[in-house]
């Protein structure tokens, strides 16, 4: 895929501010962080989830466990995607039954990844509640799914990609909009 015209949306400092604000909102809405478990969707949802957990710990002094979810096997497009994704391990080292699950992803787009993640979580047990937190909501939903916590809402065209870079994997914190040629 050739890309051009990168448009900076959010820089490093702002990424931190957004995540910090989201952490506060999460604590506020849940009246603390007890019973809360974070499950991050591979790959970048995991890092956003870990950062949220760190901030929550600083504020509330509560250890929020973070699990990793690989949704590849739950996707609805296994035989139509060009590059078949590599299946990676899911690692949810806690029992989710009767817990409040905060599902974390980097970008909310069609809603299909969230759908796949919800199905996957349900196979692990019966949580009390699932909330959704995303760094960017770029619109264009194809399923009736909304996030409970949104870092930033962006209006995009279908010809654009939202590229999230995080230090843990990309060495830099930034969010860009890129045009697909």
């Amino acid at each position: 895929m050739e890309t051009q015209q990168k448009k900076f949306l959010v820089n490093e400092k702002e990424v931190n501010r957004i995540i910090t604000r989201m952490a506060h909102e999460i604590i506020e809405k849940n009246h603390g962080a007890k019973e809360l478990c974070i499950i991050g969707i591979r790959t970048r949802g995991v890092y956003v989830g870990e950062r949220l957990a760190n901030i929550i710990k600083k504020i509330e002094n509560v250890e929020v466990p973070v699990g990793i979810l690989d949704i590849t096997l739950y996707r609805d497009d296994v035989d139509s995607i060009d590059k078949q994704p590599i299946v990676k391990e899911t690692d949810i080292p806690f029992d989710i039954t009767n817990k409040k699950i905060l599902l974390v992803d980097d970008v909310l787009f069609t809603g299909r990844s969230t759908r796949a993640a919800l199905d996957a979580i349900m196979d692990f047990g019966r949580p009390k509640e699932i909330q959704l937190a995303v760094l960017i909501d770029r619109g264009h939903r194809e399923l009736p799914i909304q996030a409970d916590f949104v870092g930033k809402k962006v209006f995009t065209s279908l010809k654009e990609i939202v590229e999230v870079n995080l230090k843990e994997i990309d060495n830099i914190d930034q969010i860009k909009i890129v045009n697909i040629k």
């Binding site: 690989d70 590849t72 096997l73 739950y74 996707r75 296994v78 590599i86 299946v87 990676k88 391990e89 899911t90 690692d91 199905d119 996957a120 196979d123 692990f124 047990g125």
Partner: peptide, 21 residues
């Protein structure tokens, strides 16, 4: 061999089935 690893992880779950196929 690499792809089989996450599949083996599925066996530790109570629901060992995924909707892939």
């Amino acid at each position: 061999l690499k792809t089989a690893k996450p599949f083996k992880e599925l066996f530790t779950r109570s629901i060992k089935k995924v909707p892939t196929l």
